Simulated assay, not measured.
Amino acid sequence: MQTMKMLLGTAALSLILAAPALAASSDSDIAAFRQAKVSLTQAIAQAEQQGKGKAVDVDFDTKNSVGLYQIDIVSGETVTRWDVDASNGKIASADKQTLATWAQQLGAGVEPRELTAASTSLAQAIGIAENKGGGKAIEAEVDHDNNRLTYEVEVLNGNGTRTIRVDGATGQVMADKS
């Protein structure tokens, strides 16, 4: 447990600070996303229910011409990536790994207790960002900003995207970049 705290407290935090921001979505992903019948927040609710935990990262991708939300759910010491079909909301697949492995691979610096203590959930942050950005969220992730839990949400509006950062404690928009 001490190793886990050290990993998440120092090494992972330095990794997250060096990690790039949300990647821009490809044209094929955007086209598939526009056809989705299931919203990002609906997909998160499905994955959180299945995984009995909190969402910390969500991406939209296409596999074999099927639009999928890839949602990472933290539950205890496990992170499960749930692929949720964007056309019907059904779970397409799940892949589990330890929280330590996930943190090392993705550079996450978030401890599970931070997620349960946050006043604003990832799904709520997405709603705030969609309202501010005037569109639909296509990707979102939990992050740290000045030792605070934050959410970074990519919102697709019209032909472009906006990246909106939401404070996990207050739900306030901290940054809005076109």
Rank of each mutant, 00 (worst) to 15 (best):
M4N: 10
M4A: 14
A12I: 05
A12T: 06
L13W: 05
L13I: 13
I16T: 11
A19N: 14
A24R: 09
S25G: 07
D29N: 09
I30P: 00
F33Y: 14
R34N: 14
R34I: 04
Q35F: 03
S39I: 02
Q42K: 12
A43R: 02
I44D: 06
Q46E: 13
E48G: 08
D57G: 09
D57C: 06
D57E: 15
V58T: 06
D59H: 03
K63P: 08
N64R: 13
L68R: 03
L68M: 11
Y69H: 06
Y69W: 09
I71V: 14
I71S: 04
V74T: 10
E77K: 14
T80K: 06
R81M: 10
K90M: 12
A94R: 06
D95K: 09
D95I: 07
T98A: 06
L99E: 02
T101S: 12
W102K: 05
Q104N: 06
P112H: 07
P112W: 03
P112T: 06
L115A: 01
T116M: 05
S119R: 07
Q124A: 08
G127N: 08
A129C: 05
N131Y: 08
K132G: 05
G134T: 06
D145V: 07
D145F: 14
T150V: 15
E154T: 09
G158L: 08
R162L: 11
T163G: 13
I164E: 11
I164Q: 04
V166I: 15
D167Q: 10
A175P: 11
D176H: 13
K177Y: 13
K177G: 13
